[in-house]
Nucleic acid binder design. Structure first.
Lengths: 229, 229
DNA sequence: TCAAAAGTGTTAAGTTTACACCCATGA
DNA sequence: TCATGGGTGTAAACTTAACACTTTTGA
């Protein structure tokens, strides 16, 4: 019977699958995107999104994590699949399906990495160059999804270090939503967010007076989520 | 040079791609999902989502439309890709990637179709049976996406006939958001929605008194969207 | 004549926005 | 001592939610 099944689909075409990434970080008050200078093929020398082929016997999300680790050195990263694109004519003589993910990383973790590829560069969202294929459109789709997700859950905190100041969080939120937010109203909202807790630590790096450091309490957040309905 | 490129990826594994659908309609005050009784293979006799293989030289969205037309007879349907799943072990000896879409159709259009497959059945969302693989999870993901999208744009109207009563729209919205909504407040909101216009037609089928029929003005909607920023 | 769905405004509660000054410190 | 970012409360505007009765008409 299984042979019948195999016979049923044996004539269908086979596709190459690539996982590709919009890797976001946050610095200089801007959301940044990691691009790679293509080092082979017909797009050699142009900026592209980091990507790689999915291997045999590799679960899709594992594949995504492996590829991200290879491109950034980072593990345990927040990733989310956005969608897949099938009309990419990136490679001649081969149908390629690109499964696009976005990743949110803390730039400090990235900078501490020793094995970063040297053909990569961060671009502020507003300064991403015009690229081949639908890459710019794909970035837009990832940005849209990321914005939506950060409104729903506090995943944007993955862009900050574990301890962050109110100012950093404020600037991050403004960068994500793309509009200024009143400082006092913002403080009020954060103080009411049960899952963001003030620590007794003080940041003396970014200001003379020193600013309170906050952190995200994952446990509290999950507990609340479970009991809220 | 292109040969180098081909050489570069010629050893990567190839995958079969299926497009699969969560087809939504609306009747009996419930969102309904179309399931298909599998007629071959190891899942024979069980309910699955409508799906089919993507063919060579077929753009992904075209493929999706072709497959939907084959399963429902309907063209010009609202569809949206949700995401793709790579860990589906549906077929032995083959890696299959399932690209999932959802579709919103007007049940009246569907019922008018002559060439419906006879191994299909509508299930109210709450009564979808337990299925193999991740199919239930996939439906949940499609429902979530559809809910989100209907909050953002009036795509839910694709579930209604071109002319609809306030009552139908009200029940639809309640079914989508899963909570009752006050009738008077609802009327107010719809009356303020510039893109839904009252016609001078009266529906005498669903009530004795007769109810005003409304319609969606796509032109007005698009015009507003273009000029709103 | 009555059952069944259509239609219609007002008020209270809650949420969001706007707004300006003093504080602590290192250079 | 002054330049820099840190920290704080109140009132108005707006949005959302709660609420009940009259109308029409076919059976």
């Amino acid at each position: 019977m299984e042979q019948d099944v195999n016979a049923y689909f044996k004539d269908f075409p086979r596709f190459l699958i690539v996982d590709c990434y919009v890797v976001f970080s946050f610095f200089n008050d801007s959301i940044q995107v990691l691009l790679v200078k293509q080092d082979h093929g017909s797009s050699k020398g142009t900026w592209v999104l980091p990507y790689d082929f999915v291997l045999e016997n590799e679960d899709m999300d594992n594949s995504a994590r492996r590829i991200l680790a290879a491109k950034t050195g980072l593990v345990d990263t927040y990733i989310e699949q956005v969608r897949c694109y099938g009309d990419t004519d990136c490679y001649p003589n081969a149908r390629v399906i690109a499964v696009m993910y976005y990743a949110l990383i803390n730039i400090e973790d990235y900078n501490e990495q020793k094995n970063k590829p040297d053909n990569t560069q961060w671009f502020p969202l507003a300064e991403v160059p015009q690229m081949k294929y639908d890459l710019n459109e794909m970035i837009r789709a990832a940005v849209t999804r990321m914005k939506y997700r950060t409104m729903e859950k506090p995943v944007g905190l993955n862009l900050l270090p574990p301890l962050f100041t109110m100012h950093q969080l404020h600037k991050l939120v403004e960068a994500i939503i793309g509009k200024p937010r009143d400082k006092r109203n913002f403080h009020k909202i954060v103080e009411e967010a049960y899952y963001i807790e003030k620590t007794d630590k003080i940041d003396k790096v970014h200001s003379k007076r020193g600013a309170a450091l906050y952190r995200f309490n994952q446990k509290l957040y999950e507990h609340y989520m479970k009991h809220k309905l």
